[in-house]
Nucleic acid binder design. Structure first.
Lengths: 194, 194, 194, 194
DNA sequence: AATGAATGAGATTTCATTCAT
DNA sequence: TATGAATGAAATCTCATTCAT
């Protein structure tokens, strides 16, 4: 579980911002360094290569997501409340840092390299598995309908979450994600509870 | 509604394939020409610029999608059958041409340019609106539940469709999309019908 | 047996010249292109990479040397005359193109890469083997002394040849290589004939 | 005659090793410091510039060679024994420190800078002159044949010595230099004695 | 309709070196 | 004596595009 220096975190955050704003193609060492007010070679003091910056971004995602899930599972009681919390936490996180939204659900960004693609896939699996586990528990204690397999419920839930975030981003953040997200969640809840 | 020459269609298809395989960053004039067995300048006989190729890809999407929707709406009777047809048509199309799957739902690919981004957003809107209209009809004739707004039902449906395709692609097409897609649709149907 | 285009030959020759004048460290794409009066990227039309230029230089050596040896063996009669011809041919070649001298016997230049180093070693072996074969023949027909193994005679001959060329180059071509080379050959002849 | 601190000697030796292993192009401050387990700026405590390190290597050569020659001339009696001693000493030194062999006879390494090139040339001259003097003495006291000029005998001797070392190095030290060197010396002796 | 040759701009990365600490 | 952070210069190479043929 890599830990990053302050400067490394700075580089990662600026990289996320740049990807969000301009797409992966504009994530250049020059742009990163310009945004940080340092020279291009200075970046290489902190990361050996551009690839390592990208891996850093993904590593950061993984850590954050894992932490969030753990916290949610440990605190909230009802399964539906847990899922709601996941929804609202995500929306809050994205509303605060819209750049994240542009990168976190955009697996395509990392498809041009094998190592990156594998890692992205892993993170996606990890996320889904955590949701599935929660749903399973909900089905066992009769909070959530059991006539639909947990895996497919998870696709419905995560799919909706991803799509509304994508739409929010593509519309240039033209609506209130937290509010519309909350409404969407209410509809989903309606659909999955017994 | 632009019509393309044979050579242009060829370029568009190879471009889609390249984006799918290697990501947008590997979509270079050199790669396109190499894949076609012609020289780089030859590409410029058919498209004025790389941007025009990308616009061509999007234009192609739009045309295809519109045609598909029209056909579906004109032929099938029940609203649920129409939605099912949309699902299965998509899955069939992707299974036949996996490269499409990598590009059609990957709006991020086109984010680095304003014109492209706008067009992508438009296409997405268009798609959703068509689904929404169908759902509305279903709610009016009591095929589909009315306690959830049509817009949110559309998000649930489209989100699930997009996610399963994304998972199929990220897993390197490791499962049968048509079959798992059909199962997913059954679950969704369960959830949206009255 | 790679054949080179005119432009490729030009690049190879200029590269040899640059290595001779400034050392391998000054053999840069920029310097090559400047010397040719074209842009840097233009070089890449003719060679895929700098490595390929270096391999081209070595391939050129090999071809030239092989051709020379074949010709010498086919034409001249006495073994001693053959060896003399090898000496004088080398000296003439170097006098006409001093840059060659700086590169052809400077295996160190190519040591920083495995592929290059192997190839250099191979060429060196090839050369020695050809000399050895000639000496063997000379020992059989009693032209050359047999009390010293052919391999060691070859080292003595080639070593002297290489050294005088090296001295000529390091002295900035301050003496007449063809003349001093001829004198050296006379001494060597004295030493190896029966 | 510069004397070096312990740290300076360490830097010089590691530099020789690096040049031997990877070629002059891989002799970077970064590589030196990495090999020594210190930081890059630390190198500059001990040498003002990279050039000074290279000059240090050459100065080291010169000192060592001079010392060796003096010792040999003072101790051994017969001229042939002196030459033999020079041969065996060299081989022993190289066998113990193969890196030396890669640098000591590789004048090309230092050709990219005037100051270095001049110094290398000087050392080479120095070496040859010492050999020539010994040969002259041998010719005067009739140990060595006088029908061949001392200068050319020196080229034959030194050329063979250099070549066998080069071959040893290029073959990745695949034969026993001391043994094959001894055999070569016997052949040379055969050739130069009256 | 196609190509060989070329290029300006710019990408990632390396290098020797400096400076504050 | 040593280091962490930084940099100007320059290296290799890629890219979209142009032009003469």
């Amino acid at each position: 579980m890599a830990t990053f220096t302050e400067r490394q975190k700075e580089i990662i955050n600026i990289s996320i911002k740049l990807i969000a704003e301009k797409g992966i193609q504009q994530l250049t060492i020059k742009n990163i360094s310009k945004n940080m007010g340092i020279s291009e070679p200075a970046i290489y003091r902190h990361f050996d290569s551009k690839m390592d910056i990208l891996l850093g971004i993904l590593s950061d995602f993984k850590t954050n997501t894992k932490t969030a899930f753990k916290q949610i599972q440990s605190v909230d009681k009802s399964v539906v409340q847990q899922l709601e919390k996941i929804f609202t936490t995500h929306f809050k996180r994205f509303a605060a840092n819209p750049a994240l939204a542009a990168v976190i659900f955009s697996e395509e960004i990392f498809q041009n390299d094998k190592r990156l693609a594998e890692r992205v896939n892993l993170i996606m699996q990890l996320n889904q598995n955590m949701i599935i586990k929660i749903i399973e528990k909900g089905q066992q204690n009769n909070e959530i309908r059991s006539d639909i397999p947990e895996k497919q419920l998870s696709i419905i839930i995560i799919g909706a979450l991803r799509l509304i975030v994508a739409k929010w981003r593509l519309s240039k953040y033209s609506f209130d994600l937290e509010q519309e997200g909350a409404e969407l969640w209410n509809s989903i809840k309606e659909v999955i509870v017994v």
